[in-house]
Each structure stands twice: as structure tokens, then as C-alpha cells.
């Protein structure tokens, strides 16, 4: 598979703030790639560099095999962007703005697709900019993006303000885009959205990529929680590598174990005789929270120093 986006060692600072500090990102053609990170970690900055709105201080970025700064216009015929906070002109109707964005991407929108999208998102295209609610402003940009025939969709927290029904419509639109071979870069804080849509995710923190891979791969790096009722009191669990938060009450055992060390724990448990066992794989929330907590810990250490 060819790469739709390759970014390596990207640096960008605004005055004293280092927004991007050697960021790497690879998005394969035809995948839906989740782009996660705490607020202010550099997601939108990365996207603005990819759109040629900001010029990186150093590092390499390629979009669909071209340079996002010097080939910006050519590239933008092949991509559609939805910002997290859509602002409209107060005296233009939603329908006018949708058509404008479509034409500015270098072609008329397919009328049938445009109508279909307006219906699916239940948007009234005759209202004027100021009268739209937050969610409806978002829909204007989403309709314009999904009705465009482009290779790459760059979505920066696109569903902020959408109701759950519209969230579902959004998800099915992304799935259809993938089925037609489009590439999607999706920055989002809605983890259920990421979990159900994304083939791979990248997690960034403080302008740097800290994890990247499929969800299955990422899960592998985290802990599974195990609760078991045993025939006899457990023996030697505390000495096993990768065991955390061990809690023994008589014959009841609760513990967390690093997923790749699960095997040894299970052997030790069966040695005591297992009456019942519940094992929960880590959720994306836990995965994500771990990075947030690491963040807090690193912050605390920095203060301690």
C-alpha cells in the first residue's frame, strides 16, 4: 500500500511555544486513521501544516506524494477539510456555502450526492450563517466535504456539537468513504467514534508521537484486568513480572497484568485451581488515560525537579 500522508520529524514553534517537537505520522492510502492526543498537544497545528496554512520550521511532510506547502493548490483539489469550529458568513445561506466550498475544491458538486447528504444530515440549506446552531454549522462543512469527490478527507474534531443520530450518520459516511477507497485522517476526542471507525491510530503528546498502530497492537501494550475465585489461596503472584494493583482477599484475587505477561499469571492461577474467572481487555479509554496520567506524572516530576 502507498502512503497518503508521511510526516517525519516535524518541528514548529510559535515564539517560545514548541507546538510540534519532532512529530511523526504515517497514514496508508485507503485507511481511516485516528489522530488522538490531549488538548494542546499539536493536532490542529499538524493539520494546518498538512494544509499548507503553516510552514513547518523543520522536518518533512508529504501529502499524496506532494509537498503540502509548495503544491498546496494542486493538492487541495484532491482533499476536503472539516474544521472543528466552522464559522460562516452571516449573509450567505448554508446551501451557498456548500456549493462555494465544492467549487473551490475545483469542481461542481455532484447534485445527487449533494442532495443525498443534505437529506441524510437533515440540514436546511436556506438558512443564513448566523442563524445556524453549532451542530448545524458543522453539518454545512460535513455535507460539503462528503459530497466532494476527493481522495483524502482531513477531519479535525468534525462531530463536535452533533447529536447522537447525526453522529451515526457521520460514521456511516466515513465508512462509505473508506469503502470507496478514500483515505481519512480523523482527529477526535470521541473514543467510541475512533474505536468503531479507525483502522489505525496515532497518539501524540506535546508535539510528539507516542504511540502508533492498530487498536489491537496498542491494546497489546496495555494491561488486562483479571478477577478470579480460586480453590485455594494464591501463591507467588506478587513475584510475577508485569503484575500490578494486586488485591487478595482470602481466595478472591483482583489484579492488573501487562497483556504480554498474561500467560504466566494464568498458569499461576490454575495451579491454585480456578472456580471462576473474569478477564477484561483494556478499553481505549484506559489506553488513553494511561497517556494522560503519564503526562501528569511527567509534569509532576518536572515540578519536583
Amino acid at each position: 500500500m502507498t502512503k497518503a500522508i508521511t510526516v517525519s520529524g516535524l518541528h514548529k514553534s510559535f515564539g517560545r511555544t514548541h507546538a510540534l517537537d519532532g512529530l511523526d505520522l504515517t497514514v496508508e492510502t485507503g485507511e481511516v486513521h485516528g489522530f488522538l492526543g490531549p488538548n494542546g498537544s499539536g493536532k490542529s497545528t499538524t493539520i494546518r501544516v498538512l494544509l499548507g496554512l503553516l510552514r513547518a520550521d523543520s522536518g518533512a511532510a508529504q501529502l499524496l506524494g506532494k509537498d503540502p506547502w509548495s503544491d498546496a493548490v494542486e493538492l487541495h483539489r484532491r482533499l476536503a477539510y472539516v474544521p472543528g469550529d466552522v464559522t460562516l458568513w452571516r449573509n450567505l445561506s448554508g446551501g451557498e456555502v456548500i456549493d462555494l466550498y465544492g467549487r473551490l475544491r475545483g469542481g461542481r458538486l455532484d447534485r445527487a450526492r449533494r442532495t443525498e447528504m443534505i437529506e441524510r444530515f437533515e440540514l436546511d440549506p436556506t438558512k443564513k450563517g448566523r442563524t445556524y446552531s453549532k451542530g448545524n454549522r458543522q453539518k454545512v462543512a460535513l455535507v460539503a466535504a462528503f459530497a466532494s469527490d476527493v481522495d483524502l478527507l482531513i477531519l479535525d474534531e468534525p462531530t463536535s456539537g452533533l447529536d447522537p443520530l447525526m453522529e451515526e450518520v457521520f460514521q456511516s459516511c466515513v465508512e462509505e468513504a473508506r469503502d470507496r477507497g478514500r483515505t481519512v485522517l480523523l482527529s477526535s476526542h470521541i473514543l467510541s467514534e475512533v474505536e468503531s471507525l479507525c483502522d489505525r491510530v496515532s497518539i501524540i503528546r506535546k508535539g510528539r508521537t507516542v504511540e502508533t498502530g492498530s487498536l489491537a497492537e496498542l491494546r497489546h501494550l496495555t494491561r488486562t484486568s483479571v478477577t478470579a475465585e480460586l480453590a485455594a489461596a494464591p501463591n507467588g503472584l506478587a513475584k510475577l513480572p508485569g503484575v500490578h494493583d494486586l488485591d487478595i482477599e482470602g481466595r478472591r484475587v483482583k489484579l492488573q497484568v501487562e497483556t504480554d505477561k498474561l500467560d504466566a499469571v494464568l498458569r499461576s492461577l490454575t495451579a491454585s485451581g480456578v472456580r471462576s474467572l473474569v478477564s477484561t481487555p483494556p478499553t481505549l479509554e484506559e489506553l488513553f488515560l494511561r497517556h494522560y496520567q503519564d503526562d501528569v506524572r511527567i509534569g509532576a516530576e518536572a515540578v519536583a525537579r
Binding site: 452571516r90 450567505l92 446551501g95 451557498e96 462555494l100 440549506p125 443564513k128
Partner: peptide, 16 residues
């Protein structure tokens, strides 16, 4: 504010 057209004729940065 009155409702505007459902379809737009604006097609370029210049006309906008």
C-alpha cells in the same frame, strides 16, 4: 434575516 437560496452560484474566491 430572510432565508437564502438553497443552491449557490458563488464559484470562486473572486466572486465570494
Amino acid at each position: 434575516t430572510r432565508p437564502g437560496p438553497a443552491d449557490g452560484a458563488l464559484g470562486s474566491a473572486g466572486s465570494l
